[in-house]
Computed example of a mutant assay.
Amino acid sequence: MKKRIVLALGGNALLKRGEVLSVENQYKSIHLFAELINDLAKEYSITIVHGNGPQVGLLALQNLAYKEVPAYPLDVLVAESQGMIGYMIAQALEQQAGMSPVTCLMTRVCVDANDSAFEQPSKFIGPVYQVEQMSELKEQYGWNMKVDGDYIRRVVPSPKPQQIVEAKIIDSLLTSDSVVICAGGGGVPVTRKEHGYQGVEAVIDKDSVSALLAEQIEADHLLILTDADAVYIDWGTENQRALRDVTSEELQPFAQPDGAMGPKAEAVINFVERTKNTAYIGALQDVKAILKGEKGTCIRPVETAVPDSKTLKESLVY
């Protein structure tokens, strides 16, 4: 039986920062991803979770542009982005020769209606803007804005995922050797009610959902693919150094609420510590080399460390 791997594909891995959010530009990255997945599917049972930050932000802008109809809530826009991006990935995957059957599944994720994240928006969505536009955007749209690098972006609530509603269906699809695209954009955020589920205004972090899903379907590995080729110490300075092989304990200092590498570090730490399996963080184009330990950052449980294993200092790549 093939080992199971969950691939978390970042929105910025599908679209380079500052690039026009066109279908053509997204397909360029998706077709590259599809070729890599075709090779990987020969060895692994694959689940794909994709981000939607740029896309759901664009849908929100388009949503506001037509004032004859009340604006759609974020949970509906997340569902739209799931269908849009999932469709594009499925189309590209099925064009690969010898590809396993591909299923794109609309996925809901339960959150706590009392999560403090609803009072402290932190999830970046949509395009970047110049810093001097902050007051204008707040006044025009009523958005919460935060600094993102040299720019500013809109932020929305991002509650913690508690349960993936369709987890059993995903497990069944994997058992039938299907490549599954699911929980896109972190899943459609819902809360449990007496007679079903109700959508909420939020966008869940797709890395957190990927870790939870990987745990629920008993995946052997979690691989978070982003536009960074590894986790770095002293990132952005002349002394920056890549980490190649670390324990979840050694990665803990990186798990900060920074909206960048922090959520990814937190997600892989949770997966590794709960399952005692291995996780990886790296660049989309390096996916095969990452799994071989040649690129990216490998995160292992503390319990698997052996006496002659590398220390944190020795795992640095200069």
Rank of each mutant, 00 (worst) to 15 (best):
Y151R: 00
V231I: 08
D171Q: 05
G126R: 04
E80M: 02
A265N: 00
R241Y: 12
P307F: 15
V76G: 05
S178D: 12
M1T: 10
L14H: 07
Y151H: 04
N12Y: 11
L58V: 09
P253G: 05
E94V: 06
L7A: 03
L213Q: 08
C104W: 08
A167C: 05
M261C: 06
I170K: 03
D258A: 05
E68W: 14
G259E: 02
S45N: 11
E201Q: 08
M84E: 13
V209D: 07
S158I: 02
Q216V: 04
A92P: 13
A279E: 11
Y280N: 05
A267Y: 09
S100T: 06
N277T: 07
Q120I: 05
P257C: 15
R17K: 13
V272Y: 12
K193N: 13
V56D: 08
S315V: 01
A71S: 09
V147L: 13
Q256M: 11
A34D: 13
A267P: 06
H50D: 07
V111P: 03
E294Q: 01
T304V: 15
V20S: 15
P73A: 01
L243R: 05
K168T: 06
E303P: 07
G236N: 14
R300S: 14
V209W: 05
Q55V: 09
D177T: 04
G11E: 08
L32S: 09
G149Y: 14
Y44T: 02
A79M: 01
D227T: 09
G185I: 01
V165I: 10
N52F: 13
V155S: 01
P101V: 00
V200D: 14
S22D: 06
L284Y: 09
E139H: 01
E238H: 12
Y44W: 12
K310Q: 15
V76I: 10
V111A: 06
A219K: 08
V49I: 00
T311I: 11
